[in-house]
Computed example of a mutant assay.
Amino acid sequence: MITPQLSTKDFTRTDVDDFRHLMSELVSTCQSIADQHPGGVWEPTTADLFDQFAESMVLMADVSRVLNKTRRGIRRIDANARQRLYERASERRLRLT
């Protein structure tokens, strides 16, 4: 049996809109963070090293949160498209028997 391969027709308009929204949200968050750090340089707001670590953890958590949301969303979109693909392939096989 040949495993069906995804193609662009397996994605709905909603899938594409959701994907673009997820990516825009990711880019917007990254831009917002970059805007807070001119020249791409992170300058801590305190001289205390432990406070700097804490500040950096907040920054990384913000990036991580939106990145994980984007990754989950893309996986969901992919899974939905694959489900539609497999359902269509299954329907075709049933018609042939």
Rank of each mutant, 00 (worst) to 15 (best):
Q52H: 04
R88F: 03
Y86M: 13
T45R: 15
I74T: 07
M23T: 15
R95N: 08
N80T: 04
F11T: 00
L94F: 06
F11W: 01
L94K: 14
K9I: 07
V41P: 01
L26S: 08
N68G: 10
V27Y: 08
V27I: 11
M57A: 14
T46M: 03
T45Y: 08
I77T: 02
R88E: 09
L22H: 05
Q31F: 04
R95M: 10
A54D: 10
F50A: 13
D51Q: 15
L85M: 12
R71W: 12
L67W: 07
V58L: 08
V63G: 07
G40Y: 04
M57Q: 14
A34Q: 09
E43F: 07
M23W: 15
R82M: 03
K9Y: 00
T14C: 04
V58N: 08
V58F: 09
T70V: 05
R72S: 12
T14V: 14
F11Q: 00
I33M: 08
V27G: 06
H21L: 11
A79C: 05
E55D: 08
R88K: 14
V66F: 05
D48F: 02
N68K: 12
S7A: 04
S7W: 00
L26W: 13
R20I: 07
T12M: 00
R95V: 03
D48E: 12
A61L: 11
L96F: 07
H21M: 08
I2W: 08
F19K: 11
R71N: 10
L6T: 02
A89F: 06
S32I: 10
R75W: 07
T8F: 04
R84Q: 02
T46E: 05
S56L: 15
G39V: 02
S28A: 10
S28Y: 06
D48I: 11
I77N: 00
I2C: 01
L22E: 05
V63F: 04
G73P: 04
R88N: 05
E87N: 08
A81P: 02
D48V: 11
Q52P: 01
R76S: 05
A79I: 03
Q5M: 06
N80D: 14
